[in-house]
């Protein structure tokens, strides 16, 4: 079971707005890895993430989650799979009509019937795990700062105890300190909850602190795939300029 990749993209091609955003992207994620998807703006990182979770379909190619081909499974089966992974949207996508605590409780309430006291216990646990101050729990997402919104969204993504976590730009919009703190929280959670994580990022510090493996997308293709140090040594022009600009800074 541990050898089979839990996320697999095979020769994915996506046509958007008359142009091939992905032109043959393949990779597989193994259990327990933190993998970052990097690439310039507009290289279809977010689109690829949406395809992996079944929100969109690639034009060609195959995407499978937990060994099941997303193109051929029923909607019901897909929803069952969706309980096994968490997704953190770029802007949090918290439900604005609910308090933070209700947001975190929402997936649990929808999928399980827990008595109120246990539900409260689970919500408190998730808020504690992501390090959200408890007075934030009663507030609406619109009353929180960007960093707290990210944490609340992470708590919601963790609510159903997922095995797999997709994070779209987890540290964008956070100040450097907040971003490092978020990375640290994530690292602790990943190590102790045994999560597999795929994230997209523009944040080089996240890459250095957190990530086991990097996949580089450029002009629709994977131009680098491996541990950060190996990828950073690549002679590819785009990868070199990407790491050079930041390392000298």
């Amino acid at each position: 079971m541990s050898d089979r990749p839990i996320v697999e993209a095979t020769n994915v091609r996506t046509r958007l707005g008359g142009r091939w955003v992905h032109d043959g992207v393949s990779f597989a994620l193994r259990r327990g890895e933190i993998t970052a998807l990097i690439g310039g703006s507009g290289t279809g990182k977010t689109v690829l993430l949406r395809e992996l979770v079944g929100l969109e379909r690639p034009t060609e190619g195959r995407v499978s989650l937990f060994g099941e081909d997303l193109a051929s499974i029923s909607g019901q089966r897909l929803n069952a799979l969706r309980r096994r992974f968490g997704l953190l949207f770029q802007d949090g996508a918290l439900f604005s009509a609910m308090s933070v605590a209700e947001n975190v409780a929402a997936p649990v309430v929808e999928h399980l019937s827990l008595p109120d006291d246990l539900l409260c216990e689970v919500v408190n646990l998730k808020l504690n795990l992501v390090g959200l101050p408890l007075d934030a729990a009663r507030r609406r997402p619109s009353e929180l700062s960007g960093g707290m919104r990210k944490r609340a969204a992470l708590a919601r993504a963790l609510a159903l105890e997922p095995e797999l976590l997709f994070l779209d730009e987890p540290t964008s919009g956070l100040d450097p300190l907040g971003a490092r703190e978020f990375d640290h929280t994530l690292r602790v959670l990943v190590d102790s909850l045994g999560l597999t994580v795929l994230l997209t990022t523009h944040d080089l510090d996240t890459l250095y602190d957190l990530v086991d493996r990097v996949i580089v997308l450029h002009e629709g293709k994977v131009i680098g795939d491996g541990p950060l140090k190996e990828v950073a040594r690549s002679q590819h022009e785009w990868i070199r300029s990407y790491f050079d600009t930041r390392m000298t800074g």
Partner: peptide, 13 residues
Amino acid sequence: LHLVAGRHALPAT
């Protein structure tokens, strides 16, 4: 267990 125990001490809402 250690992670959860560490966070458990925080007050509940």
